[in-house]
């Protein structure tokens, strides 16, 4: 079963990576920890689940495309509104206000989700069932999980290319490296901030939409992934994309192997690893 445990860990790492990537981009560019990030993930999941249940009759696997699109788009839209109305007035304000306004948004969004989609769980497992299973070294494994890993990898590479090769990407990196210098160089910090926030929200929504065929969408859906994304960010270093990748691999494998071999204390082990890294290297693995 070893290959399956490792694959599970990778699958888990894949969607945690997408969430923490978004969280980390926002953190790097805007210096803001978005506590409502998990809610954006949940919004993506709910929207995608809703889309799938609407189209599920006699559908093929391509049903996933509209689901991913609508989920990502709605989360991005929520991100845009949130940035414009809530975050922007906070640019010059102290840290506690910035954190608290995202905390307020978290509570707000939980109930907005309830208002839109009701309080009951939505099951949208059609794509998961349709893809069936493949054989991995004699063990059955759902093909959908492989698809999730593949898509996460593609998105990760795209983001990396974007950050490395495009003008906007380079500007974003410049801001996260040295904010004052970037301002002095005449970069439009506000507009780039908005952009990065929407990008982060879209990544969260995409991740939610990608995961939802394997799990029900239900209230409080974003809480656990948010915590895991925090751990990833703390482990990997604040604002570091490489850190997000390594951090999510550590978190994913710890969870998978932890549940297989020491199920009693798996969650605590994760936090202990994070704490150990922080004591040894306070700025995280790839922090500055």
């Amino acid at each position: 079963m070893w290959p399956i445990y490792i694959l599970n860990g990778l699958y888990f790492a894949a969607f945690i990576f997408l969430i923490s990537l978004g969280l980390n981009i926002i953190l790097g560019v805007m210096g803001l920890l978005n506590l409502a990030h998990g809610s954006l993930y949940a919004i993506g999941a709910f929207m995608a689940a809703w889309t799938i249940t609407r189209l599920a009759e006699g559908a093929s696997i391509f049903i996933l495309l509209p689901a991913l699109l609508t989920g990502t788009a709605l989360a991005a839209l929520f991100g845009l509104f949130m940035e414009y109305f809530l975050i922007r007035p906070m640019y010059k304000r102290a840290l506690e206000y910035q954190l608290l306004i995202t905390f307020g948004a978290l509570m707000l969004f939980e109930d907005v989700i309830k208002m839109i989609w009701g309080g009951e769980a939505i099951y949208a497992s059609t794509p998961f069932v349709l893809l069936g299973r493949v054989n991995i070294l004699g063990n059955p494994y759902p093909a959908y999980f492989l698809l999730v890993m593949l898509l996460a990898l593609v998105v990760g590479v795209l983001i990396w290319l974007f950050m490395a090769k495009t003008r906007i990407g380079v500007m974003l990196r410049a801001i996260s490296l040295d904010r004052e210098m970037a301002t002095a160089m005449g970069l439009k910090i506000n507009r780039l901030g908005t952009f990065s926030f929407v990008l982060g929200a879209a990544l969260a929504g995409f991740s939610g939409a990608l995961v939802v065929p394997t799990t029900p969408a239900l209230l409080g859906f974003g809480m656990e992934p948010l915590i895991l994304a925090f751990i990833v960010v703390v482990m990997g270093g604040l604002g570091s994309l490489k850190g997000a990748l390594i951090g999510s691999l550590v978190v994913g494998q710890t969870r998978s192997l932890g549940i297989a071999f020491f199920p009693e204390i798996e969650l605590a082990v994760m936090f202990l690893i994070a704490a150990a890294i922080l004591v040894a290297k306070p700025e995280g693995l790839f922090g500055r």
Binding site: M1, N8, F12, T214, T215, L218, F221, S256, G258, P263
Partner: peptide, 22 residues
Amino acid sequence: VGTWWPPLGTTDFTAHISALMG
């Protein structure tokens, strides 16, 4: 051969299921 304890409200049992299969 083993007991697993996912918390109430778990949405992802994949790791538990694999462990059970193992």
